[in-house]
């Protein structure tokens, strides 16, 4: 039996909102030691999502037997919207489940809402991602990155990122003209989360589809900072750290023809 209780429903609500536009059907793997993990690839096989929710992400977590919960994220989103952000959220499944029970409890009032969601058999292949060495790593406020990705998409369907020792340059060029945003490394002593950190082994020049970047920045509601790891010509890693876990996106770059 699986029983995972979150201190507030908002984490799960934000997670599903962050990924449901990229992938529709997902297998949630549950185990006592690893908590809940998920790997899913979008239909175009350009963007991969990897989620880890350690048992420590939960207020209470037990999983007697390893389980795979095949869920339609559109349906899960509908159910999660029934609960308030501050509600306790508990996910419950039997050992050979046909359904996932989603329970919301209002912390102040005596109200309990219960939903049963049908599970599905989802055939999906899993890609093995080894730890990669990257040429550079950038950590910046996730809202700053979200703004650049959203703004620059209005100019072009591609976003070029150039990283040098102390700055990151985002460039877009499209039918109406061109644009660039340069951000420089700096340390904010008052609020460390506002700092911009660049670790560089080698300068990088990569281009990504603006559509995918706009899907990725939907996760900026989950973490105040995002870490972007880039290497020329190989997939980039975008990581949003969670309390006791992470949401990672791997994105294949675009190539010059």
């Amino acid at each position: 039996m699986l029983e995972g209780k979150f201190e507030s429903a908002s984490l799960m609500k934000r997670l599903v909102e962050a990924i449901k536009d990229s992938v529709k059907l997902c297998n949630f793997n549950c185990s006592q030691t690893k908590g809940i993990t998920l790997q899913a690839i979008d239909d175009s096989r350009v963007l991969l999502i990897s989620l880890k929710l350690d048992p420590g992400c939960f207020e209470g977590f037990r999983c007697d037997k390893n389980l795979v919960l095949g869920l339609d994220l559109e349906s899960l989103s509908k159910v999660l919207k029934q609960g308030n952000n501050e509600d306790y959220l508990t996910l419950i499944a039997e050992d050979a489940p046909d359904n996932l029970l989603v329970v919301f409890e209002d912390p102040k009032k005596d109200r309990i809402s219960e939903f049963s969601l049908k599970l599905m058999d989802i055939d999906s292949d899993v890609l093995s991602i080894e730890d990669m060495d990257h040429d550079c790593s950038i950590t910046l406020p996730s809202s700053d990155f979200a703004k650049v990705a959203r703004d620059m998409r209005t100019l072009s369907e591609s976003l070029q990122i150039l990283v040098t020792k102390d700055s990151v340059k985002f460039m877009a060029s499209g039918p109406i003209g061109t644009g660039s945003v340069i951000i420089k490394a700096h340390t904010d002593l008052k609020d460390g989360k506002e700092s911009i950190k660049i670790d560089l082994n080698k300068s990088v020049n990569v281009t990504f589809g603006a559509k995918y970047l706009n899907d990725i920045v939907k996760a900026s509601t989950l973490a105040e900072t995002v870490t972007i790891k880039l290497t020329n010509k190989i997939p980039a890693l975008f990581e949003f750290k969670l309390q006791g876990g992470y949401l990672r996106y791997y994105l294949a770059p675009k190539f010059d023809e």
């Binding site: 991969l48 890609l127 281009t207 190539f255």
Partner: peptide, 14 residues
């Protein structure tokens, strides 16, 4: 804007 690469070229199915 270039050709979009796919992840399959980089990661193997396990």
């Amino acid at each position: 804007g270039g050709t979009q690469g796919r992840l399959d070229g980089f990661f193997k199915v396990s």
